[in-house]
Amino acid sequence: MGRIKNIWNPDNFQGKHEKKEYFEGWYFKLVDKEEENFLAIIPGISIKDDGSSHSFIQVNDGNNNKAYYIEYPYKDFTYEEDKFIVKIGGNLFSKDKLILDIDTNDLKLKGKLEFKNNVEWPVKLLSPGAMGWFRFMPFMECYHGVVSMNHDIYGNININSKTINFDKGKGYIEKDWGTSFPKTWIWAQSNHFSKENNSIFISIANIPFIGREFNGFLMGLLHEGKLYRFTTYTGSKINKLKYMDDSIEFTVSDSKYSLHVKIIKHNTTRLISPKNGNMNGTVEESLTSSIEIELKNKKNNTIIFKDIGRNSGFEVKGRLI
């Protein structure tokens, strides 16, 4: 019963009954009010049947372009059955707060952050979260959830003797679970536009499906309290996807709106990604890229929103065909 209930609670831990070739991880993106400090904190688990199962916390220090992967025993991973509260050692992760207590030779990271005014992706009976009806498919390689598109941060973190005040900063939380990340993908996210509380999330990936493959995508633009969704399952289409040396450009549209996007890459850090449950893949991630967007009403060709997102997370793995 818990497994079925969790379909409509994608934030919660989904892997209770998994015994091999499985991963699950949450992604916390943190930017301070002054937009001078950028961190991504990624707690998760890697399950294998060969004795190598473990839990982990991965950290992307966007200020110094450094990444850390801290491995913990699998037994150090605990969770609440009916809500998103995960603990790894002395660290706690939820949609409302983050408590960090990491002490290694390379990284000392301690502090407590609270999240307020969370904007969650809608969960409906036939569309339980960002995956839409694909969430009901039991054989997907990778599932995705958006825990909070945008929220305010309060609290402090001390990283390697440097104290960062995150009061009135901006945050984003998402998660992935399954066997492997896709073989190719594009991911980007920003909460920083010329006006507050606008956000964008972009995910395009190669999806293996019943012996075939297709390019699936999930995109959400939060503007003035309205979430504009462009997804495979809502019938949206991507046109003119172009790869350039340091940027990617495309247009996505549905029956009512079109969204033109140009993502410009800045400094990147190499992170670890999952493959067949193992954390042995890699991807380059930036926390300081930019996203140029233009949202149009197709009926009268008027511009609804045009802006540039700062402090953008950005990953590119391979090339989508």
Rank of each mutant, 00 (worst) to 15 (best):
K5G: 04
Q14S: 06
K19I: 12
E21I: 02
E21R: 11
E24Q: 14
L30M: 09
E36K: 15
N37G: 00
S46N: 12
D50N: 15
F56E: 07
F56K: 04
F56G: 06
I70F: 03
Y74C: 04
D76C: 08
F77T: 03
Y79P: 03
E80G: 01
E81M: 09
V86K: 03
K87T: 13
G90Y: 06
S94N: 07
D96Q: 11
K97H: 13
I99V: 14
G111A: 09
E114S: 14
V119I: 15
P122E: 03
K124I: 00
G129S: 10
A130Y: 01
A130V: 13
M131W: 02
R135Y: 07
P138V: 02
P138L: 06
E141D: 11
C142S: 12
H144K: 09
V147M: 06
V147D: 12
N150C: 09
G155C: 10
I164P: 03
I164F: 07
G169N: 07
G169Y: 07
G171Q: 02
I173P: 08
K175N: 12
D176A: 05
K183G: 10
W185N: 11
N191C: 11
I210W: 11
G211N: 10
F214L: 14
F214N: 08
H223M: 01
S236L: 06
K237F: 04
K237G: 01
K240M: 02
Y243T: 06
D245N: 15
S255E: 13
S255G: 00
K256D: 14
L259A: 07
H260N: 14
V261Q: 01
H266M: 05
N267Y: 07
L271D: 05
I272G: 03
I272T: 15
P274I: 04
K275E: 10
N276Q: 11
G277K: 04
N278L: 14
M279P: 04
N280R: 07
G281C: 07
E285D: 01
I291K: 10
E292W: 04
E292S: 14
L295H: 11
D307L: 08
I308Y: 00
K317N: 10
R319F: 10
